[in-house]
Design a protein around this nucleic acid. Structure first.
Lengths: 65, 65
DNA sequence: GTGTAATGTAAAGCGAACTTTACGTCAAGG
DNA sequence: CCTTGACGTAAAGTTCGCTTTACATTACAC
């Protein structure tokens, strides 16, 4: 899974810290997801899509196994 | 989080067993998600959307806290 | 040069997602 | 009847998502 979260976040003028706050998660969580260390949970992914007025599929790219 | 997975699955003529097989997860996982016991991981949710030619947002409904 | 904002790493701990195994129910068909 | 398919529950174990804390780096302001 790749994602364009960092790009989207910057485009909307958020710091990692502020985004974390608004999504109700820790800054570590944002960093780890942006860096591809792990995938967000489904509800978190959906909150992100909602916040940036887009869809889960546009932020996260499903790759083949 | 609510979801219409069971409905979609039946509409496409899959048993829980067969869907699990095609998604590469256990039948327990399908049952638990349909019953709302827990949320799927993001990649699993996206595979489901892909399989049913729809989007994550149409299968899973984000609720407020 | 000292502060402070933004980004990053690391590690320990907790609960959630998922697996495997095993057993129970109920309906339909032979 | 008895089997077989589809659905369900339960419990124990592993891995992953997320938290908290603490510390390092870079860059820009004053």
């Amino acid at each position: 899974m790749k994602n364009i979260l960092a790009e989207l976040r910057k485009k909307h003028g958020f710091s990692q810290d502020r985004l974390a706050l608004e999504l109700g998660v820790s800054r570590q969580t944002i960093i780890s997801i942006e860096k591809g260390k792990y995938n967000p949970s489904l509800p978190l992914a959906m909150q992100m899509a909602k916040k940036f007025n887009t869809t889960v599929e546009e932020i996260f790219i499903l790759e083949e196994d």
